[in-house]
Amino acid sequence: MRLGPDMKIQIKIIGPLMYAAGFSEKEMDVPAGTTVDGLTVLIGIPKERPRIVTRNGAAVSPDGALAEGDKIAVSPIYSGG
């Protein structure tokens, strides 16, 4: 897949996934057309780690494309203690 010029997103990594990614929050430049799954690979979270990804507070599917200014959060699947 051909990806376009970079766009800026904000990303927050929640819980122990932050130790896999090596950071908890930052602004990132990603190529236009990057998908949610593509982003998690880009930041070093292994594909097999169960997770939920939200965009602006709502869940987004793995193949969802990111857009300029998105606020993305990647969290483990919590179960409420």
Partner: peptide
């Protein structure tokens, strides 16, 4: 492997904050 107990249940706080 999962690293769950590094933050244990307190890890869920930013998730709740994120999803209102």
């Amino acid at each position: 492997q999962s690293g769950w107990s590094i933050q244990s249940t307190t890890g869920v706080l930013p998730f709740c904050n994120e999803v209102a």
